[in-house]
Lab assay of single mutants.
Amino acid sequence: MQNSHSGVNQLGGVFVNGRPLPDSTRQKIVELAHSGARPCDISRILQVSNGCVSKILGRYYETGSIRPRAIGGSKPRVATPEVVSKIAQYKRECPSIFAWEIRDRLLSEGVCTNDNIPSVSSINRVLRNLASEKQQMGADGMYDKLRMLNGQTGSWGTRPGWYPGTSVPGQPTQDGCQQQEGGGENTNSISSNGEDSDEAQMRLQLKRKLQRNRTSFTQEQIEALEKEFERTHYPDVFARERLAAKIDLPEARIQVWFSNRRAKWRREEKLRNQRRQASNTPSHIPISSSFSTSVYQPIPQPTTPVSSFTSGSMLGRTDTALTNTYSALPPMPSFTMANNLPMQPPVPSQTSSYSCMLPTSPSVNGRSYDTYTPPHMQTHMNSQPMGTSGTTSTGLISPGVSVPVQVPGSEPDMSQYWPRLQ
């Protein structure tokens, strides 16, 4: 039975679970980093996980050691009161100082060594604690504590007292930064006198190289990059290397530039699409467009005044059976039934097929058609009795279509119309 579990990581490298990497692998990681390889490249070359490479390099940059820390136990506290007071002093002298600059000053002034120097995250935590204590304490208590930490007896009751030896409130920041720059020169002199001055200088240079600022491109470089971006948004590694040799930039910087440029292009394309949609959409909808001609068919113009009344309900007709019959029939052209047409008796099958359309009241044959006459024609229609054979009435077949029909004066039988409509 094995005491430890061995495995293979996602890159194909072998590791022992819970145990640190061998010293030979750690040394190779540092050597590759000094030669300029990126952590992701080191991870692929040595088949070590990216997190492990970053952790080893980060500890090497901070402490200069590649040895693993002790497994188990607690780390001794490195942010001692003396170190905290120095950090507060540096922050007062130059409020814009960075944590890694404070760390360098602690090393250069001999406050800490490589073994007990606090990390950048520890210094940031100390600065946050100082800021929170400043908010919790009152103004007087804060000034007393700062005077105690600074070891001075001057008056701290006013704002300019934060910067000793100065009279203009805006000047101390520059003086403090100048003092810090002077301390940086002392850093070089002190570290050069040490035993491991060369190694420390190499480590600091490598650290500065990794902690780079934003790349500033010249106009020629920007023009070359934009020209390549117009050709393709995704250049391959050969195109990037050719462009890197042409404009004297690292291939990694060119790759990052193209990634950022593609993101910018997507944002601009989104804005262009929004403007295009806004320009195509009308600002207001016309009133006429809300009524579609496919839904509402136009009603033909009436030929006679009587045809303006298109349904039985508008003429005072309360018989719903006839109203439904007229509205359900398709529109037909106007025609006239003459008196000489043969009077065919209704076929029983045809009569039964339209039995649902006729009223059940037996008085329908005896009703006159003056009910369908509009009010303004009552006088004219009353002067001509319906009993004469020459009287013409208008029957409504569908809305908007008038059918003048000659009705025999002897017997106005409704059943004569249905064979004609089939």
Rank of each mutant, 00 (worst) to 15 (best):
I66M: 06
F15R: 06
Q135L: 11
G7V: 06
E101N: 09
L11H: 06
I45Y: 13
Q136S: 13
Q27L: 14
I66V: 09
L11Q: 08
D115F: 11
N50W: 00
S122I: 00
V16Q: 15
I42D: 01
N9F: 00
Y90S: 08
P20K: 00
N124T: 06
S43K: 02
E133F: 09
K134Y: 08
G138D: 13
C94N: 14
Q2D: 09
P22Y: 00
R26S: 02
V83H: 04
G51C: 00
L130W: 11
I87C: 07
Y143V: 11
K75H: 06
T113F: 13
R92C: 15
R147K: 11
H34N: 14
C52T: 10
D23W: 08
E133V: 09
I102T: 03
S24H: 14
P22C: 06
Q27K: 13
A131E: 11
V111S: 10
S122M: 00
R69M: 11
V83L: 03
G12T: 03
N17T: 08
K75Q: 05
R59Q: 05
S43Y: 02
R38M: 01
Q2W: 11
L21S: 04
R38C: 04
M148N: 11
R67N: 08
S24F: 11
K91Q: 04
I117H: 11
S122A: 00
I29N: 02
G7S: 15
N114M: 11
G64W: 02
A88R: 08
R128C: 06
N17A: 15
R19N: 04
G18H: 01
S43A: 07
G72F: 03
N3S: 12
R103H: 07
Y90M: 09
Q135M: 11
K145L: 10
Q2M: 12
I45H: 14
M137W: 11
P118N: 00
F15G: 03
D115N: 10
E93H: 09
V8H: 06
D23M: 15
R105K: 11
I123Y: 02
V30F: 02
R59F: 05
K28P: 02
A88I: 14
Q10A: 14
S85D: 09
I66E: 02
S74N: 01
D144G: 09
L149K: 13
A33I: 07
S65V: 04
A139V: 11
M148E: 10
I29Y: 00
G72S: 04
D23Q: 09
I87D: 00
G18K: 05
F15V: 03
G64F: 03
P81C: 07
L106R: 03
R59K: 06
N17D: 02
E93C: 09
I117Q: 15
G51L: 05
G138E: 11
V120F: 04
V14D: 04
E101L: 08
G36V: 01
V16E: 07
R105G: 12
E133C: 10
P118S: 03
A37Q: 11
S108T: 11
G110A: 09
D140T: 14
G141S: 13
R44A: 07
P22D: 04
A88V: 08
S54G: 05
L46I: 07
T25E: 06
Q135C: 09
A99S: 09
C94L: 13
A131Y: 08
S49L: 00
E101R: 12
I117F: 11
H34D: 07
H5A: 13
Q2Y: 09
